[in-house]
Design a binder for these strands. Sequence first.
DNA 1: TTTATTTATTAAAGTACTTTAATTTTTTTC
DNA 2: GAAAAAAATTAAAGTACTTTAATAAATAAA
Lengths: 193, 193
Amino acid sequence: MDCELLIQHISRHIQLDKNEEAYFLSLIQLKTIRKKEFLVKQGEICKTENFLLSGCMRTFTLNEQGEEQVVQFGIEDWWMGDLYSFLTQTPASYSIDALEDTVIAQITKEHLDNLYLQVPKFERFFRLILQNAFIAQQDRIHQNLSLTAEQRYEEFIRKYPQLEQRITQKHIASYLGITPVFLSMLRRKRVNG
Amino acid sequence: MDCELLIQHISRHIQLDKNEEAYFLSLIQLKTIRKKEFLVKQGEICKTENFLLSGCMRTFTLNEQGEEQVVQFGIEDWWMGDLYSFLTQTPASYSIDALEDTVIAQITKEHLDNLYLQVPKFERFFRLILQNAFIAQQDRIHQNLSLTAEQRYEEFIRKYPQLEQRITQKHIASYLGITPVFLSMLRRKRVNG
DNA sequence: TTTATTTATTAAAGTACTTTAATTTTTTTC
DNA sequence: GAAAAAAATTAAAGTACTTTAATAAATAAA
């Protein structure tokens, strides 16, 4: 089981001894999700938290008109899941699917609850992860409120140059809160000056 | 020192014995911030995390044109601060001021770091607080992207009926990402049908 | 209480972004 | 490698929201 990336990721935040690492790995399951397959479906229960070892996923909702709204992307080294559904084991508000063939490391709620009891250091680990995620989200809220679509697109490119290559414009537009048509206009403007 | 509300708030998430509670309280300072006074100023370092015992505050930024963008409100039972500035002890991106006379319980970074070491349960406590904050923010991002200004205003009223009364329309408009002029139009439409 | 200052309302003109629909390009499938 | 399906581009008309400016109402200051 090749979780090297996950172990590195954890060691950036907390130090585990060999026993703790082995115990942690015993709770983890690897899973491959092919492009277009779902990890979580809106309305079903999100049973695991998921660390991306490779590939690319998106979190989105379907509104009443059946339109997709992308809320988040995730690539290697990111956690993905519907946190509220996971914590409360209630139906998910969001769907998550794979934009590329993706390999994830999964932990169930039961295993995570045990992990917190057996290795309390993981309370710290997930606190630190959440701190970073919270700060990133706050900045995103601020930008969504204060920047124009053009400025948000520039920021997206600056911040996630890799993502810009890997993800379709349709999905990027949705993430930015604009239509693909308008994003196309912004791109033309960028190129032509 | 009347921190009853804070103690209740904590006991909803973790259980403290009397020693732990006393130690925690020894790290806390009460402070009153009068209406219009600042708790944090953009560009200065945010030295404390702050729990609101009473009153009302707002987090905002000033952009290059000197316009205020409200990012968040806080009332009794909420934590406020510039988390990134607090954690890294670098200049704050956000300002925080009081919209009403406000009483807060403060903890410095040094005290909080000690608290995590002395009473690791607090790792759990702040993980739980951050989980809730993260989920709320994710929903806000989703709504900002997918709802019209009118729908966002309806949601705001539904979710924070108390706040709607206590906060000026100017600030609510900024929080919603619209102009006060447009908010006024939405309100007229609501009343007249 | 009066005056000054800030906030809210209204109207009208302007702009950023959407919608629709047709065409081209790219990707997927068999 | 051809056919089908999905994504991107373009243009034109429409709409949600902004900007400006003038007036009224509410709050703060003296």
